[in-house]
Computed example of a mutant assay.
Amino acid sequence: MNFSHDIEYLQEIAKKILRFSPVGVSKVIFRAKINPEGDVANFKYNYECNDGSSGWFISDSALVEEEIFCLLKKHRAFFVSQGQNLWLESMLSIDANSGKISMALKYD
């Protein structure tokens, strides 16, 4: 599997999320559920700050959420094109301090 497209999509999603995350955030957990047809999504954004505080936040723009949705659909289509199963849920962990990104996928 060629992971370059996979990584590019995740990096772009992380950049968009960090732009509207709370000030002082150290980690963001982004959860997305997409229906099998790919036309409906549900997003949740949680954060942790360097001072130990945590909570949730929302996007500041419907347009940005649509861009994130499009990137997630591209990510999912890329996986399918590489012989992987269609995932329905994802959890993206973004370390704002180090720039590290990890993703966990759920297929059913």
Rank of each mutant, 00 (worst) to 15 (best):
I7P: 01
L72T: 13
S90C: 11
W56G: 08
W87L: 03
L71G: 03
S21A: 15
A77M: 11
G24I: 04
N42C: 09
D95P: 05
V80L: 14
Q82E: 05
E37F: 00
L18Q: 04
G24Y: 05
I17R: 11
L72Q: 12
G55R: 13
D95A: 06
R76K: 15
S26Q: 13
S102P: 01
N50A: 11
R76V: 00
C70L: 11
I34H: 12
L86E: 00
K100H: 10
G38I: 07
R31L: 09
S4E: 15
A104V: 08
G24T: 01
L71P: 09
E12C: 05
D95L: 08
N35E: 03
H75W: 09
L72M: 14
R76C: 09
A41D: 12
C70Q: 12
D60W: 02
Y9I: 04
V40C: 11
Q84Y: 15
S81Q: 11
V80I: 14
R31K: 12
K106V: 02
D6C: 08
I7M: 03
E48S: 08
I34L: 14
F20T: 04
N97S: 04
F30A: 13
N42R: 12
F20Q: 03
G99M: 01
G52D: 05
R76Y: 07
V28G: 05
F78E: 12
K100R: 11
S21K: 03
K74Q: 10
S54P: 03
D51V: 06
N35A: 00
K16G: 04
S81C: 12
